[in-house]
Simulated assay, not measured.
Amino acid sequence: MKLWRVVAGILAVGFVAAGVTPAWACACGGYLPDQESRARAYGENALVRHDGSTEEITLSMAINGSSKKAAWIMPVPSAAKVELGETGVFNRLQWMTRERVETRKTYWPFRDLGIMGSGRDTAGAPAPGSSGGVDVRQQMVLGPFEVVRLAATTSAPLIDWLRSNGYLVPPTLAANITPYLTEKWEIVAVKLAPKQAGQSMSGSTPPLKLTFSSDRIVYPMRLSKGATREQTVTVYVAAEHRVDAAEVPDTDVKPELLYAGRVQDEALPVPTNYLTAYTATYAEPGRITNDYLFKQAATDEEFQRVRYVTVNDGLWSTIAILAGGPVLLGVGAAIVARILVRRSSTARP
């Protein structure tokens, strides 16, 4: 299950070249590969599943190029269970929430004149111990990743811990992560741990799944404030009912509804099988001030985008339609005439 965009700030491991600044490129954080590859993250999908008391977040990023050293951090509201997610879940989600294609016919010479209808429209129908002020709660290896669960009360010891463990820390991280630490959120730090020397990562990263207690459906976005590039966020929310985006990262950016409806998929069992999908692009990440907060919508009204495809039925169909009127009129007139003649013959003495 590729859940969330809780990626808070992907930082390069061992990337300490002076004068190099992070190229933030992910929706909920930033991605910075090793200096040699200069690979970039160009996409990210997130699935959030909530049953009323427990939230699951699955996340995967798409990498353009390859990277031998990469890392990121993720803030979550409470202690998290971290494991590999299900491969292929986002492909299924994209298929389930795809546009419905409807065909409209037009007839020459009316094509593309707007008389018969044309073009494209859209309509509805997330080693144990203490180290210098940082509580290292758990360390593990999951597939190609080294994962560490951390807790701290202030940013300074956390930043020191990240630096001493090979993370490049962007200058904005301390300020942007402080609100999460004040609210006692847990920090999950992840970095690439290739099984073979020289092994690199490219394409989509293996999905990671985080499970934690939460009475709210929240999707962390505040660390994206440090991004310097446009951020596109697509979040799939699986819950008992349809949800609205009650709070958004940037109040000037309204997320677009992609889909709402009941689905059948093993990754989304009943009752959390109502899927609501949103997407948004943040051209100015510095304006991000909040996380996503989703709440139950007023109704479970379903929605699916519709793409209309106009098909020209051809010249001869047009001629037939244009000629059909006079022909039918003539036939009708002949029938009426015959009836009148019969009646006239019958009425003779």
Rank of each mutant, 00 (worst) to 15 (best):
R104H: 13
P144V: 12
G166E: 05
S131K: 13
T182S: 08
G166D: 06
A277K: 02
V327M: 04
G114R: 02
E256M: 09
L158I: 03
S66N: 08
D300P: 00
M1R: 08
G52V: 02
P109K: 09
H241S: 00
S202V: 00
L257A: 04
A23K: 07
A280C: 08
C28W: 05
L258T: 08
S67F: 04
L257Q: 11
Q35A: 12
A193P: 00
Y167D: 04
R229F: 13
V331D: 04
E284T: 10
S78Y: 10
V134K: 01
S202D: 10
K254A: 01
Q296L: 00
L210Y: 08
A238Y: 03
S214N: 15
T272L: 00
R92P: 00
L142K: 09
V169L: 07
A152H: 02
D34M: 03
A246L: 00
I115E: 00
H50L: 02
I319R: 13
T97Y: 06
T153K: 13
S344I: 03
P285I: 10
A80Y: 06
A27M: 03
A27K: 04
R92D: 10
S224V: 01
A337I: 15
N273A: 02
P271D: 02
K68R: 12
G132A: 00
K195V: 07
Y274H: 11
I339K: 14
S60H: 11
Y308K: 11
K68F: 03
Q231I: 15
P194I: 12
T318V: 06
F145S: 05
V89F: 13
E301Q: 01
R5P: 08
G43A: 15
C28F: 11
M116T: 11
D121G: 12
E183M: 10
G330N: 04
A347I: 11
L32D: 14
V327F: 08
G286A: 14
D135V: 04
I288P: 05
N290H: 12
Q304W: 01
E183G: 01
S66I: 14
D51W: 06
L275Q: 03
T21K: 13
M1Q: 09
I339V: 14
D265P: 05
T122V: 14
P179K: 02
L47P: 01
G14F: 04
G129W: 00
Q264V: 12
A189W: 03
T310V: 14
R242H: 06
A23T: 07
R216M: 06
W108R: 14
I63R: 03
A156M: 08
L322K: 11
R49V: 05
A245K: 02
L223W: 03
G325S: 09
W185A: 02
L84Q: 12
S214W: 04
F294Y: 03
A156Y: 08
A320G: 15
Y274Q: 06
R216I: 02
R348H: 09
I177D: 07
S155W: 10
A17I: 12
E301N: 00
A334G: 15
R38C: 08
L93Q: 03
